[in-house]
């Protein structure tokens, strides 16, 4: 089995999420999530060595592709975080992601990542920068790049878990929120373990990080499924639905007793 299995799985999820949403672009809905998923697919693809090396050679072979992937990821977590905070109806999370503190954190992280990247000299293409991990400054660059995704994931995981536990919500939405919450939790766990030095790059770390991505993407794909099912069914007035529900109820009961009597 390829050691890059987690990356490939996450890539398949992302591409699948992008594919199902292409049709909706014409009507103009779901554009933000579409852009986020395209960028996420690109960032995940850049974590796979073969793709990384060929893209990086186009960009000059000095690991600029790694920096580009970080920035893609920042845009993705910002967009997803903002949409999720709104979807889960959490004004606190919205404030922390897209309000002044969120923008401040985003700006600081983007600037730090760029200056740390520029401060390093990495003249040969190296997927995941593994060739340079003995340099302290490169390690700092890699660690700093995890901070912003962790910040957003930690902000969203609470509202997502709350939406998963909310009894009144649709089952499919509770399931989707649960997937998102689990995925975000994995992102936080992976980032913290890496920061503490408890795990190094390897199959476990990849499973945590890319497993988290797969869970989040499948969660929002379930929301897409729920939406397209709802729209294909059409909408009725609440009055009609309540009265209609009554009629189905009695009809099914009626049918049950009728068939029982026939027999």
């Amino acid at each position: 089995m390829s050691p890059w299995i987690a990356q490939w799985v996450a890539l398949v999820f992302c591409v699948g999420g992008v594919a199902v949403r292409i049709r909706d672009l014409r009507s103009g809905r779901g554009r933000t999530i579409f852009v986020a998923l395209v960028l996420l697919a690109a960032a995940v693809a850049l974590s796979i060595p073969g793709i990384y090396l060929s893209v990086d050679s186009l960009l000059g072979g000095i690991n600029v592709a790694h920096l580009v992937a970080r920035y893609f990821l920042y845009v993705v977590v910002f967009l997803l975080g903002r949409q999720m905070a709104a979807a889960f109806g959490s004004s606190r999370a919205q404030f922390l992601v897209a309000g002044p503190p969120g923008l401040l954190v985003a700006g600081l992280c983007a600037a730090t990542t760029f200056s740390l990247f520029a401060a390093n000299s990495m003249p040969t293409s190296s997927p995941g920068l593994v060739a340079y991990t003995d340099q302290p400054l490169v390690r700092t660059y890699l660690q700093s790049a995890r901070l912003y995704p962790m910040y957003i994931a930690a902000t969203v995981v609470g509202p997502a878990a709350a939406a998963c536990l909310a009894r009144g919500h649709r089952t499919i939405h509770r399931f989707a929120s649960g997937l998102v919450a689990a995925g975000m939790a994995l992102v936080v766990v992976h980032g913290s373990l890496r920061l503490l030095g408890a795990i190094e790059a390897g199959p476990v770390a990849a499973a945590l990080a890319f497993g988290g991505i797969s869970l989040v993407v499948s969660g929002i794909t379930f929301v897409w499924i729920s939406r397209s099912r709802y729209e294909s069914r059409g909408r009725l007035s609440a009055l009609r639905e309540l009265f209609g529900a009554n009629r189905t109820f009695q009809n099914s009961r009626q049918r049950q007793s009728d068939t029982a009597r026939e027999r």
Binding site: Q83, M84, A87, R170, V223, W224
Partner: peptide
């Protein structure tokens, strides 16, 4: 209930 559903659909759907 519909309002919570719509929030999900419009932001993540």
């Amino acid at each position: 209930d519909e309002r919570t559903d719509k929030l999900m659909w419009e932001n993540l759907g």
